[in-house]
Design a protein around this nucleic acid. Structure first.
Length: 225
DNA sequence: ATGTGATCATTT
DNA sequence: AAATGATCACAT
């Protein structure tokens, strides 16, 4: 693929992202000589990687923001034609150890969500990947209210993990955040602690934003624009 | 094995 | 239809 330049300011990045609105993934892929897969069954992260590439995000999967010099994280957001999120949004892996004394203020997830460039993509499964259309991108930072919701959920989930109840956590925990498996498959294991403080192996988990939360972000953005 | 990019697919 | 568990690819 060809390599777009790294955006030097937030304004430039946002401008570039917004210029993608109305383009199909096929058009974007062609512009940087990337081949479009016929479906995403084997390349689930393809859209996110394509957008990173076209916007000049630093390649690779290093544990840092997509645009380190701008402190901005890029997230693609699959929506249907009515603007409704189709999936929860993966944020980051959830630490299951070393959490005693952990604070929301210094958590990895808070840092990840500090400033996000959201790029909606009309991505219903019935639409061929190449024909899926990019929507209106926007940059977001949590409002005080949003951060409060996130912090509450994070605290609840983290408390359960610290107390050794990670395997009792289900999707109903948390209003806007949820903890779900995030691994290669159901055989993947990572260390955690049980309720007696003894280490044991369990599925790696990740934090995901529920669709009601991302839906609200979209609605606010649309109201303003 | 972990982290980044997520969506798939089955269950409820 | 929504929710939850399972899974795929690639880099480190």
């Amino acid at each position: 693929m060809t390599k777009p330049k790294i955006p030097k300011s937030e304004a430039e990045l946002l401008n570039r992202a917004q210029n993608l609105a109305g383009m199909t993934l096929g058009e974007i892929a062609a512009s940087i000589n990337v081949v479009v897969p016929k479906d995403l069954k084997r390349e689930k992260g393809w859209i996110g990687l394509l957008l990173e590439q076209v916007l000049g995000a630093s390649a690779g999967s290093r544990p840092e923001p997509d645009f380190p010099h701008l402190g901005i994280e890029l997230k693609s957001l699959p929506i249907n034609a009515q603007g409704k999120p189709l999936e929860t949004t993966f944020i980051c892996v959830a630490p299951l150890t070393g959490l005693v004394g952990a604070q929301w203020q210094t958590s990895h997830i808070r840092n990840k969500l500090a400033r996000v460039l959201w790029i909606p993509v009309i991505s219903e499964r019935t639409i061929p990947v190449a024909d899926r259309m990019v929507g209106s991108a926007f940059i977001w930072s949590p409002s005080a209210e949003e951060e409060q919701l996130l912090a509450l959920d994070w605290q609840e989930l983290t408390d359960m993990i610290v107390l050794g109840h990670v395997e009792n956590i289900h999707g109903k925990h948390g209003q806007v955040l949820q903890l779900r498996p995030k691994g290669a498959n159901s055989q993947a294991k990572t260390q955690a602690y049980n309720r007696h403080g003894q280490p044991f192996m369990t599925l790696p988990r990740g934090f995901y934003l529920k669709t009601n939360f991302t839906q609200a972000l979209l609605n606010k953005h649309l109201r303003i624009n």
